[in-house]
């Protein structure tokens, strides 16, 4: 396994410290030798991955299936995991995204984004000036005019609190591309919300 430490990425991370990431990597190495050790990572990330998948599926039972499939694939391919300076969770999010995409390819259903009402409020609070007030139905109506990739970028940045390095890793794009995509998406959302003002 390769270790590519990037201090800048780790400093930017709001939740996980460099020490945590190092400890987590050690836990991954232990799990490669003994799969029972994977439980530490499973317990730590199960709820986050479950919530992430649920946002895109909006069905509890299917979400549970895809979540267990995600962890199953992670455990099966743990030997192939390469440390790239992002938390282990980014790898799980990537597997989860692939599994969700596979689900939609198989079922040929319309993609769903199911967001918590509080999450919408946080997104607007962080990005739109205080004097503006929008109801959720209006925000959703405007967001429907955005592209799917824009919604995914907003979701990872504002609902999952991922930094750009993690977003880049999850979506398999460069960090600058992840930044550009996120800023472009938020800019587009602002413009769409301002339309009512005009």
């Amino acid at each position: 396994m390769n270790i590519i430490m990037n201090n800048k990425i780790i400093e930017n991370d709001r939740n996980i410290t460099q020490e945590d990431i190092q400890k987590e990597f050690e836990a991954v190495q232990r799990a490669v030798k003994d799969p029972a050790e994977f439980q530490v990572l499973y317990d730590r990330y199960f709820a986050a991955i479950f919530n992430y998948i649920f946002r895109k599926i909006d069905d509890e039972e299917i979400t549970a299936d895809i979540t267990s499939q995600t962890f199953w694939k992670a455990l099966k391919n743990l030997k192939k995991y390469k440390f790239r300076g992002v938390p282990f969770s980014a790898w799980l999010y990537r597997i989860a995204s692939n599994e969700v995409n596979r689900h939609y390819q198989q079922t040929k259903k319309r993609v769903i984004f199911s967001f918590d009402a509080q999450e919408f409020e946080n997104l607007i609070e962080q990005n739109v000036e205080e004097e503006h007030e929008f109801d959720i139905d209006f925000i959703i109506k405007q967001m429907r005019q955005m592209s799917e990739s824009d919604i995914v970028a907003l979701e990872l940045r504002y609902f999952e609190s991922k930094n750009f390095a993690e977003i880049a890793f999850i979506l398999d794009i460069t960090e600058s591309n992840a930044k550009m995509r996120t800023y472009r998406a938020i800019d587009k959302l602002r413009k769409l919300l301002e339309r009512r003002e005009a």
Partner: peptide, 27 residues
């Protein structure tokens, strides 16, 4: 659009998520 956006009024509780956790089955 190719996608639909929905609003969830109720949050998923930790205990509800924990019902689906089964590490013994996975291992």
């Amino acid at each position: 659009t190719r996608f639909d956006i929905r609003v969830r009024r109720n949050k998923f509780t930790q205990s509800k998520i924990d019902r689906h956790k089964n590490f013994q089955n996975l291992i």
